[in-house]
């Protein structure tokens, strides 16, 4: 399986993402500059964290108009897995691939620490390797992770099981229903504030994020690779 790590000016988790896929997961991966206008050759799209365009105006608001985002939308429509982490999640929200928006953290502080998450939905292509309601430890690092949407949207998210991750104990940023990650209705676009790519090896403090990437690969193999 071949992954693209999209690189925007100001991305800073692109190398972590690349490392997670290449060294820990053992799959193919390439960096793709935001100006690129073709993602045809890739099977999965990864939007890394960081501060694209310095977070000017709103997080993700400028990156969302990059050339490559048209291709990300196409990939999402084609059913390819699209994962946005942190700033990548913010870009997915701004682009409309996921519903809602991000507000400043309720406590107004940038939060950078490991948090415990609950895997609320382990039926998605991103979470099949997890147990139902499994507790995992993954770091967060953000100033704007306070997820917000209108009541109608929130009801839809719950009804369609689109809430994939929740903060398990304390809610670090004030997000609605302690939401840490959601998918689109089709289930092939996941946005999450915590960084699974920073939790892929015990040396890093946790390897709990690795199963997310393994889930994507297994899902892809099951549907694309015919075994004799």
């Amino acid at each position: 399986m071949k992954f693209a790590v999209i690189v925007f000016p100001g991305s800073n988790c692109d190398i972590d993402m690349y490392h997670a896929v290449k060294d820990e997961l053992g799959e193919e991966v390439e960096y793709v500059w935001h100006d690129e206008a073709d993602l045809e050759q890739f099977d999965g799209i990864l939007l890394p964290g960081g501060f694209s365009y310095g977070d000017y105006l709103r997080s993700g608001s400028i990156a969302r108009f990059s050339n490559v985002m048209n291709e990300v939308v196409k990939a999402a429509e084609a059913g390819k897995p699209v994962l946005g982490v942190c700033n990548g999640f913010q870009i997915l929200l701004e682009s409309g691939l996921l519903p809602g928006a991000m507000l400043r953290n309720q406590g107004l502080k940038f939060i950078c620490r490991p948090v415990e998450l609950e895997v609320v939905n382990n039926e998605t292509m991103f979470t099949k390797a997890y147990q139902p309601n499994e507790r995992i430890t993954v770091p967060v690092a953000h100033g704007e992770g306070n997820y917000f949407c209108d009541e109608e949207t929130l009801k839809q998210l719950e009804k369609n099981n689109q809430i994939v991750f929740r903060y398990a104990n304390d809610n670090p940023n004030g997000s609605l229903l302690s939401i840490a990650g959601i998918t689109n209705e089709k289930g092939n676009v996941l946005g999450m504030m915590p960084h699974p790519e920073r939790a892929v090896d015990k040396l890093l403090g946790s390897a709990d994020g690795l199963k997310l990437f393994q889930s994507i690969v297994k899902h892809w193999r099951d549907s694309h690779v015919v075994t004799a």
């Binding site: 105006l57 709103r58 608001s61 108009f65 701004e94 928006a101 507000l103 949407c149 209108d150």
Partner: peptide, 8 residues
Amino acid sequence: KLLANTVI
């Protein structure tokens, strides 16, 4: 399109 995010 850009200057405001009408969700919030």
